[in-house]
């Protein structure tokens, strides 16, 4: 019933806010699934790192590269996995920051939407009273 009263310009503005909210929501879920994937990677690499640490020196270690197993020095394998873990944790940090940033932006948009709606209601009320 409010649709009849609300002018097109206001409607467009509401629409625009809604659109940005939906876009933000999509971005948020994308960022969150990226973080989840990174977390899984981190856990798997952690397991591998522990396995490599627990094995006695001089053990043969191989890395699957495409269809072949390449021999790798145990020490080299250990440092490689460590660097990978560090990289992943950096990415994880960045991902978490991104999720937080999107969430705060969504919060801002939501409060601005509510402010806009209360403003609209006030206008409607004053219109009704003046009539």
């Amino acid at each position: 019933m409010a649709d009849a009263v609300v002018p097109d310009a206001t409607k467009a503005k509401l629409e625009a806010i809604m659109q940005t909210m939906i876009a933000l929501q999509k971005e948020a879920s994308k960022a969150m699934s990226a973080v989840m994937g990174l977390k899984n990677q981190f856990l798997e690499n952690q397991l591998v790192a522990k396995e490599l640490d627990d094995v006695p020196d001089g053990t043969f270690v191989y890395k699957l590269v495409g269809p072949v197993l390449l021999a790798e020095e145990l020490e080299e394998a250990r440092t490689n996995v460590r660097t990978r873990l560090n990289k992943i944790s950096e990415q994880l940090q960045a991902g978490n920051n991104r999720v937080h940033a999107i969430e705060t932006e969504m919060e801002q948009k939501r409060s601005s939407l509510i402010a806009f709606q209360t403003e609209l209601q006030k206008q409607e009320m004053s219109q009704m009273q003046s009539m």
């Binding site: 798997e44 690499n45 397991l47 591998v48 396995e51 490599l52 053990t59 043969f60 191989y62 590269v65």
Partner: peptide, 21 residues
């Protein structure tokens, strides 16, 4: 035995170590 420990790494283990892994 070559044991796949994940992320493309294979570690050579004797059977009892592999079983405990």
């Amino acid at each position: 035995l070559m044991v796949d420990v994940g992320t493309g790494y294979f570690i050579s283990k004797n059977p009892s170590d592999a079983a405990s892994y």
